[in-house]
Design a binder for these strands. Structure first.
Lengths: 150, 150
DNA sequence: TATTTATGAATGCAGTTGCATTAAACGGAG
DNA sequence: CTCCGTTTAATGCAACTGCATTCATAAATA
């Protein structure tokens, strides 16, 4: 159980701080514009990419690293607003297939400029392109796999 | 409303991913060891540093960037377990003073090795010292101020 | 001093999350 | 084919969060 170096603790601390600050900028932007939280965007993006065929909940679950029960209820809420539709899965009686609706696609499209502005404000305005590239490369080493997109 | 560069989006995405991964390692470690969440540690650390005199809730609030109502209830919970004590503030009738108790100090001390192991696993084992230094410097540019410690 | 405005902290309520469990259907071993 | 272990998804319940409001006191202004 070795003590982490001071450098490590600083990096950890700042990772937490930077994430909180950036997240706050992005989420606040969405909220102020009257949009749902980022998680909705993530789900809608996956579904939009999947197209007509939709996705099984467990696929979304893995891509976005959401807990099973969390996704189940997130889908409930998004579905309740009509942005996605669930239908039973032909090939697997236990499961279902989730697909984005027209208004879901539309919502995602309208959210993006606001989301993008948040990224600009939280990241681009504070770092040079070179810094962002370096940062991205270093952060990549901290997470096991590529799971998210935008 | 300029589009963020691909580099910026990647950096953002990985920031979210790296934070989630690291946080999960640390929080899971604490939980498995039977300890309360990280937030308790943060509060106890501030109080431990403040010593006998304690701190006013609004001071903790600002240092840890917690919402007022969030801290109020967090203090409730920690107090209920006997790790801190609230007493009325002499100088300001509206306020109170929060101080750590002996068992609170003890809890914080026992949590640290587990927390430290989490930082090791989430950060130190995945980056060189030089990388951690670079990362820390870049992340510092993303958050307005220094607010957290360990 | 009386009145207004600002600050420190708690809380009711609705919405969300986490945990553990359940239900249904799949798939393989005997 | 039947039984058993596994996978997919939902849900009851308790804990936690966010928002808006409230209460009490302090500070500022007239």
């Amino acid at each position: 159980m070795k003590e982490p170096s001071k450098t490590a603790v600083t990096a950890w601390t700042r990772l937490v701080g930077a994430h909180a600050a950036a997240m706050d900028i992005v989420e606040t932007g969405l909220k102020k514009a009257g949009f749902p939280p980022l998680a909705w965007y993530d789900v809608l993006l996956e579904l939009d990419r999947a197209g007509e065929d939709g996705l099984r909940p467990y696929e979304i679950e893995r891509r976005l690293l959401l807990p099973q029960y969390g996704l189940s209820r997130l889908l409930d809420r998004i579905e309740a607003k009509g942005y996605l539709a669930r239908r039973p899965c032909e090939a697997d009686g236990r499961g279902q297939v989730v697909a984005i609706t027209r208004s879901g696609r539309d919502l995602r499209r309208r959210m993006w400029p606001v989301y993008a502005a948040g990224i600009e404000a939280a990241i681009s305005r504070k770092l040079t392109e070179a810094d962002m590239a370096t940062l991205g490369a270093l952060l990549a080493k901290l997470s096991p796999a590529e799971t998210q997109e935008s």
